[in-house]
Computed example of a mutant assay.
Amino acid sequence: MRHTDDEFDEVRSELAQRRRQLASQPVIEQAKGMLMLLHDLDDEGAFALLREVSQLSNTKLHEVAAIVLSAGSDSLPGPGRDASTAAVLGTLESLTRPDGVEPG
């Protein structure tokens, strides 16, 4: 059986996607841990919160996780921070404030 160039391209593309997923996994796990600690969430609740913030702010999940980690370490720039960072943090704040309802 002979494989076509299109089949090889498809496999290469899938492999690249899997590598990106593996590279972002530690960041997501660390962000989940931070949210679990700060908001008394379990593993599923923390992931649900990350996912919801990602969807509501139209930001990729691994980017949300990186922003959460940066915010927790106070390494975010101040007033000049970019729009996606502001959207993520604003969404996260609105979902976790005491008078709001947290997912999970």
Rank of each mutant, 00 (worst) to 15 (best):
L89N: 13
T91Q: 03
F47S: 00
A16L: 12
T85Y: 00
G90I: 05
V68T: 04
G78M: 12
D43S: 09
T4D: 11
S84A: 13
R97S: 13
E93D: 15
E102P: 10
A65H: 03
E7D: 12
G33N: 02
S24W: 06
E102T: 15
S70N: 13
G104Y: 02
G72V: 02
I28F: 04
V53P: 03
L49N: 03
L49M: 13
V68N: 05
Q21E: 12
G104T: 04
V101E: 15
K32S: 11
G90T: 08
L38Y: 08
D43V: 01
L15S: 06
A48I: 03
Q30Y: 06
P26H: 02
L95I: 15
L35C: 03
L22N: 04
R51L: 11
A71H: 10
F47D: 02
L92A: 05
V101W: 14
L49K: 01
D5V: 11
A65M: 05
R51Q: 13
I67T: 10
E29K: 02
M34W: 05
G100Y: 09
R2A: 03
A23P: 02
L15I: 04
G72D: 06
P103I: 04
A48M: 12
E44Q: 10
D74R: 13
R12G: 01
R81E: 08
D9A: 13
M34C: 06
R81M: 10
I67N: 01
K60V: 07
L41Q: 04
T4W: 05
R97T: 11
S70G: 14
A23Q: 07
G90P: 09
V64W: 00
R18L: 10
S57V: 06
I28R: 00
H62C: 08
G78N: 14
Q30V: 10
S54C: 14
T91L: 03
A71D: 09
T59L: 07
E102Q: 15
V88C: 01
L22K: 05
A31L: 00
P77R: 13
E29N: 00
K32A: 12
A65F: 06
T96D: 05
L56R: 13
D9T: 08
L50T: 03
G90V: 07
S73A: 14
E10K: 09
L89S: 13
H3N: 04
G45Y: 07
A16T: 08
Q25R: 06
S13V: 03
V27K: 08
S57T: 07
Q55D: 15
Q25C: 01
D5T: 09
L56C: 11
L56A: 14
T96F: 02
P98W: 08
L41S: 00
L49G: 02
A23C: 06
I28D: 01
T59C: 14
A31C: 02
V68F: 01
Q30S: 07
L15Q: 09
E29W: 01
A86E: 13
S75H: 09
V27N: 08
A48E: 11
S73K: 13
T96C: 04
L69Y: 05
S57E: 03
T59R: 00
T59Y: 01
